Computed example of a mutant assay.
Amino acid sequence: MQRKNLTEVTEFIFLGFSRFHEHQITLFVVFLILYTLTLAGNAIIVTIIHMDRHLHTPMYFFLSMLASSETMYTLVIIPRMLTGLIAQNQPISLAGCTTQMFFFVTLAINNCFLLTVMGYDRYVAICNPLRYMVIMSKRVCVQLMCGAFGIGLAMAAVQVTSIFTLPFCHRVVGHFFCDILPVMKLSCIDTTINEIINFVVSLFVILVPMGLVFISYVLIISTILKIASAEGRKKAFATCASHLTVVIVHYGCASIAYLKPKSENSVEQDLLLSVTYTIVTPLLNPVVYSLRNKEVKEALCRAVSKNIS
């Protein structure tokens, strides 16, 4: 019976925002505007960093990688979600669902570890400034970036394999994309082992980066407090403020979404959290780094002035 069900379920249908049927056009417009702003903001950051030689430093290299990763992350989810708001009950094949989940998990974990790498970069810049360019050489930066992406690929392979070896009895996904827990609920059999695997992976990819960032900032704050001048302390902390803001929101949303007890799950809460970490958080990155980062604003002004002249 399990084998029969496994072969019969070849596609899924997203329930999405169907419970908010009367507001779907409004949601479409709002999400489309936010998505457009996200794409434009991240594209501007990547372009400015590439064009302005003043930003050719490890800090901005990692920022451009984060912006690129966030852009691909949203591309995996949001276009199909927007389509679903207009044309309901659009099916996704089993292979399509597998692919979407794999890239979503890979990029989400990659973003977690990129933020950790950016925290390490700030630690070296503030705590060991004289050797900063030696420690954070181009080779090391590329290795750290590849390491973050490699961990994402490995963890995604584990999670996706554990999900799609299950037999499925149901077709309707109570979500707007192929997230881990909503797809797992469609299985015919007990998924306790799969839930444990998912929880262990989630603990690793959330708590380990959070712990490393926390250690980095304990050392950073300790060093900043030793700076004699108030102006020097202010300048040192300003280089960390944008990163710290993004870290708090990113890890906060991820922790609530994937580490909360199963008994506390509800469809409305899950949708709200998912909208936050798939639409709002990717938009936060360009907004924070554009409005709170002096060097990015100066580079943007130089680019605008150059084009006008």
Rank of each mutant, 00 (worst) to 15 (best):
R3H: 07
L6E: 12
T7Y: 09
E8L: 10
V9L: 07
T10S: 13
R19K: 13
F20R: 05
F20E: 07
H21F: 13
H21R: 12
H23L: 15
F28K: 05
V29K: 07
V29L: 15
F31D: 03
I33K: 00
T38N: 10
L39R: 03
G41F: 04
G41Y: 05
A43W: 12
A43M: 12
M51K: 14
L55T: 06
H56F: 05
H56M: 08
T57H: 07
T57D: 06
L63M: 12
M65D: 02
M65W: 10
E70G: 07
E70R: 01
Y73I: 04
T74G: 12
L75D: 01
V76D: 05
I77N: 01
I78G: 01
P79W: 08
T83F: 14
I86H: 01
N89Q: 11
I92S: 10
G96C: 09
T98Q: 15
T98H: 10
T98S: 09
M101S: 13
M101Q: 13
V105K: 02
T106N: 04
A108S: 14
N111T: 13
L114E: 04
V117R: 01
M118H: 03
M118F: 03
D121A: 06
Y123K: 09
I126D: 02
P129M: 06
P129A: 07
P129Y: 04
M133H: 13
V134G: 00
I135E: 07
M136F: 01
V140G: 00
C141T: 10
L144N: 09
G150L: 15
L153E: 02
M155A: 12
A156N: 03
T161F: 11
T161S: 14
S162K: 08
F164T: 03
R171D: 07
R171V: 10
V172E: 11
V173M: 08
F177V: 03
F177D: 02
P182C: 11
S187L: 04
C188G: 08
I189S: 13
T191S: 09
T192C: 06
I193C: 06
I193V: 14
I196T: 11
S202M: 10
I206D: 03
P209K: 04
P209M: 04
G211H: 06
Y217H: 12
S222I: 02
I227P: 00
A228E: 15
A228N: 11
A230G: 15
A230K: 13
E231Q: 14
K234A: 14
C240H: 02
C240K: 02
T245C: 15
T245H: 08
V247I: 09
V247W: 08
I248P: 00
C253M: 12
C253P: 00
I256E: 05
K260D: 03
P261K: 09
E264S: 12
D270K: 08
L272Y: 03
S274F: 05
V275Y: 00
Y277P: 04
Y277M: 06
Y277W: 15
T281W: 06
P282C: 05
L283K: 06
N285K: 07
P286H: 01
P286W: 07
P286F: 07
R292K: 10
V296T: 12
L300T: 13
L300R: 04
V304L: 14
K306P: 00
I308N: 05
